[in-house]
């Protein structure tokens, strides 16, 4: 392969439809994962600060398992283990089952990080806030939901943004669970037209278009929602 080929931008534009459809899958994966990971992560964080020892232990176990396992392993397990071996979602349309299996793997993995960010946020809420909540008769769940978590969330908006940016980039591993997202399209193009600089640049810019605004948005939100004490 010569230098002329290495710098040829034409393949990027020739395959634009394919690339955009890959990124569209990335966006769909990210959006669904963000929702589920936030829900699971909040629930696990609630377990980890619960007064009930069994729940605390379960929450700790969850975080230790999913935070310390490579994402590729989790996604491979979703694809090969859950679908191919256990036979879950096999009768669904292949691209659809690949999508949901990817969302599942990404969500349980990202939730562990969201849980830990949130737990750090809970620690920034002064103890007196929870004591005051209990003293007016709120139950543990109510004081967590109405007083502690809203303040905890506000104090970790910026770090949550980082977790979500990492999650968007992590969708690039979803191919192993059967999702044809942007990175999968890139790999295909490397095979078809070669690993050229324009192809690489095109995809790098594509990811930045998704992640940069996410970062700015969370930075803006963090400032706007900050709780003054």
């Amino acid at each position: 392969m010569n230098l002329h080929q290495l710098l040829d931008f034409a393949p990027v534009f020739d395959h634009l439809g394919q690339i955009l459809s890959g990124f569209w899958t990335t966006v769909r994966l990210s959006a669904a994962t963000a929702v589920f990971a936030l829900i699971i992560g909040t629930a696990v964080a609630g377990m980890r600060v619960s007064p009930i020892p069994v729940l605390r232990a379960a929450g700790t176990l969850y975080v230790n398992i999913f935070r310390n396992t490579p994402l590729t392993l989790i996604l491979l397990f979703c694809g090969l283990g859950l679908r191919d071996t256990l036979g879950l979602w096999t009768n669904a349309d292949a691209s659809l089952s690949g999508y949901w299996l990817s969302v599942l793997g990404l969500s349980v993995y990202t939730a562990a990080f969201i849980c830990e960010s949130l737990r750090a946020g809970i620690n920034t809420v002064p103890l007196g806030q929870a004591e005051a909540a209990r003293s007016i008769g709120l139950t543990f769940n109510q004081s967590l939901r109405l007083v502690v978590l809203p303040q905890a969330f506000r104090s970790v908006i910026a770090p949550l943004g980082s977790v979500l940016i990492a999650m968007i980039k992590n969708t690039s591993v979803a191919l192993v669970a059967g999702s044809v997202e942007a990175a999968a399209v890139m790999k295909q193009m490397f095979d078809d037209v070669g690993g050229t600089i324009p192809v690489f640049l095109g995809f790098a810019i594509g990811y930045m278009i998704l992640t940069l605004p996410t970062g700015y948005f969370f930075g803006w939100l963090a400032k706007r929602m900050a709780v003054s004490r």
């Binding site: 007196g128 806030q129 003293s135």
Partner: peptide, 9 residues
Amino acid sequence: FQSFNLFAH
């Protein structure tokens, strides 16, 4: 409380 502990948000 001594430190008021009003809900800050």
